[in-house]
């Protein structure tokens, strides 16, 4: 039972600041609604951009359109707030945070970089091949 007591004590204190202290909520419940509003705004921006597809975002950086970079960055922002505030990663100690997040981030970047570079290479091979693939 001592464990339970220690446990609930650990969670009595939620960190209630988001945006590096710019916004501070009064209670955990209030923070949840605040994060929901933020996530909804980000999703609305994503869908609006996907619907309008403004022409000035058609330029590319590293083979990806600016528009797609914006989508990916906004997605990572959403993922951060879901993990930090809905899954309470913000309240965990740094050791647990790093064990989970650093492992994931490192392996994901590694896997994606390798596969996308390889995919692009195969595209180039098909494109410059002597045999047509379009028939």
């Amino acid at each position: 039972m001592a464990d339970h007591a220690a446990h609930s004590d650990g969670h009595a204190e939620h960190k209630l600041e988001i945006f590096r202290g710019l916004v501070k909520f009064k209670s955990n419940t209030q923070k949840i609604w605040g994060v929901l509003i933020f996530l909804s705004i980000v999703t609305i921006i994503e869908v609006a951009l996907g619907y309008i597809k403004p022409d000035f975002l058609n330029g590319t950086f590293l083979k990806l359109k600016f528009l797609n970079w914006i989508f990916i960055i906004l997605t990572i922002v959403k993922a951060y707030y879901i993990t930090w505030d809905f899954m309470h990663m913000r309240d965990e100690i740094s050791g647990l945070r790093r064990a989970v997040v650093w492992t994931a981030v490192f392996l994901i970047i590694y896997l994606i970089a390798i596969l996308l570079v390889e995919g692009d290479y195969i595209y180039e091979v098909y494109k410059s091949a002597a045999v047509s693939t379009d028939f």
Partner: peptide, 15 residues
Amino acid sequence: TGFLAAYGFSRFKFI
């Protein structure tokens, strides 16, 4: 990640 990266691979292949 494996699945989505494989999707990205195929997409870049048939970009």
